[in-house]
Design a binder for these strands. Structure first.
Length: 506
RNA sequence: GCACCUUUAGCUCAGAUGGUAGAGCAACUGACUCUUAAUCAGUGGGCCCCGGGUUCGAGUCCCUGAAGGUGCACCA
């Protein structure tokens, strides 16, 4: 009995001890903060700092700045104390510079306080630009201000932050400690900026259409459902902006594009995130050929912008993104990689027979065009390494696309493949309202067969076509995947600042 | 959804066959007036992912769960 009681008390004490020990390094920093506050130097009361130069300006204009006094601000990420002299690396958004701090120059009190600074603290440093004996461009500190205190320790600077989960959940730490991460997101920004410039130069206007939809349309995908309280209706996060953008072509804009987030309630993997960014554009009086030219030139422009060349390496493979890209019909591609020539296959029964001859078991309700697409996915896709436009998609899987004038089983559509992945999807847009209603009716049939991703009828969209839409080319492209390709990133999560993660709450 | 893998100090990682946890960096103390992964000496720091079980004894073996990664499925 007594023994048990003793055992009960001891573990409790241990638990309390360990809890305080967990935050050992934080406690040290809190204590330092308390001392600063006692001395009237609360870093969190600082409002501004007059930065005269960024670190790259000092490096780039050293000859001019040598001997001049500059003021820089940033985060301390490395300390090398030598007693009465210490060296630190101060990082700002442009890079880093070494500070050289001497007790003679600062005075004993200020120098002691400088020595108390922690890795991660944000400081403003004023001093003269010079080069150390070992050749490092540095700032000889004459005064400094602690602008913010880091209460948490940063990861080891040599190994960085490697834990994928922590990188994604605490991207701010990843950005502080891993320079290549910042580079990727700077390139992402440059790519999106270049897309805008490219489109604006072609006299497109950028528009914004609803993200909250009452009918999710424009793609075959499961939507996220949400609820509007005062209207008391369920709403859907958009799966594509297509039907809205085409209404704007009806309205007379002639050239519109939208860059924005789409939401699809589907599985996540190395190339899918539930929310992702696309550009979608529509141009009146052009068609699929116009969209091909636009697409390949847009990609090449973005690549030149961030890589300075169209010849790039992605995940160990070489790619040439120089236009024009290859153009192959789906039927020809399927013939090349599977040996089956669908131009000789006219009926659903023949298509099933061909599928079985290749060891495929298509679902019973599939039709010829869907089986052709199945062949494409199974035998062709993974082989499309260099940029290739696959053209002439079957009508069954293209409910918003114009039929080919010379073959009503096919539509005037392409998808762009690079490294076996889809990057863009484009059509000569279907502008025949009667045909469009038939296509929706066909989709409805699919829905009744249990395909909960088939398109819903959007009556207002059909009505807009009845007012007349000019012949139009349209294209949509996944920007995240483009950024992956151009920054040699393996996972979509590496090009999203805050990829979707499960909550840690219980 | 299925399969496999991972989870140990703030970070990066070791911990054969079960015997109460180690290193490097980071932190703390001291030395050091040109270092740059500074160096040297010393010190502290652990709910070994959570919860069960087997066992005299579990970081290690078994079961359940969580989070993450990869592949498949689903899918732009």
């Amino acid at each position: 009995m007594e023994n048990n009681e003793v055992k009960k008390i001891n573990p409790e004490e241990e638990v309390q001890l360990t809890e305080s020990e967990i935050i050992e390094q934080m406690q040290v920093r809190m204590d330092k903060l308390a001392v600063l506050k006692d001395n009237g130097q609360n870093p969190f009361e600082q409002l501004t700092y007059n930065v005269t130069h960024h670190t790259n300006e000092i490096r780039d204009n050293y000859a001019e700045l040598e001997g001049k006094v500059v003021a820089v601000a940033g985060r301390l990420l490395s300390k090398r104390g030598m007693g009465k002299v210490s060296f630190c690396d101060l990082h700002d958004r442009t890079g880093k510079i070494q500070t050289f701090t001497k007790i003679d120059a600062l005075g004993e009190d200020a120098y002691k306080a400088w020595q108390k600074l922690d890795i991660g603290d944000i400081v403003g440093v004023e001093g003269e630009v010079f080069t150390t004996h070992s050749g490092e461009i540095s700032i000889r500190t004459t005064s400094y201000v602690l602008l913010s205190k880091a209460l948490r320790p940063l990861p080891n600077k040599f190994h960085g932050l490697k834990d994928m989960e922590l990188k994604y959940r605490q991207r701010y730490v990843d950005l502080i400690i891993n320079p290549s991460v910042k580079d990727t997101f700077e390139k992402r920004s440059a790519i999106i900026k270049e897309i805008r410039r490219f489109m604006d130069d072609r006299n497109y206007i950028e528009v914004e259409t609803p993200i909250l939809n009452t009918i999710p349309g424009g793609a075959t995908a499961r939507p996220f459902v949400t609820h509007h309280n005062s209207l008391d209706i369920d709403m859907f996060m958009r799966i594509a902006p297509e039907l809205y953008l085409k209404r704007l072509i009806v309205g007379g804009f002639e050239r519109v594009y939208e860059i924005g987030r789409l939401f699809r309630n589907e599985g996540m993997d190395i190339k899918h995130n539930p929310e992702f960014t696309t550009i979608e554009c529509y141009e009146a009086f052009t068609d699929l050929r116009g969209m091909m030219e636009l697409t390949e030139n847009m990609i090449a422009s973005c690549c030149m912008k961030v890589n300075g060349t169209c010849d790039i390496e992605y995940q160990g493979k070489q790619f040439c993104l120089k236009p024009p890209f290859a153009r192959v019909t789906m039927t020809d591609a399927v013939k090349q990689y599977s040996g089956i020539d669908f131009s000789n296959i006219k009926t659903d029964a023949e298509a099933f027979e061909a599928a079985r001859s290749k060891g495929l078991e298509p679902e019973a309700h599939l039709r010829r065009g869907e089986i052709l697409n199945l062949f494409f996915e199974v035998f062709v896709e993974e082989n499309l390494i260099q940029p290739t436009f696959i053209c002439d998609y079957p009508i069954e899987i293209s409910p918003l696309t114009k039929k080919k004038n010379d073959d009503p089983t096919l539509t005037d559509r392409f998808e762009l493949f690079i490294d076996g992945r889809e990057y863009a999807n484009a059509y000569s847009e279907l502008n025949d309202p009667i045909d469009q209603r038939e296509r929706f009716a066909d989709q409805l049939k699919k829905r009744e067969q249990g395909d909960d991703e088939a398109n819903l009828i959007d009556e207002d969209f059909c009505m807009s076509l009845e007012y007349g839409m000019p012949p139009t080319g349209g294209m949509g492209m996944g920007i995240d995947r483009l950024v992956m390709l151009l920054t040699d990133s393996a996972s979509i999560r590496d090009v999203l600042l805050f990829p979707t993660m499960k909550s840690l709450d219980k």
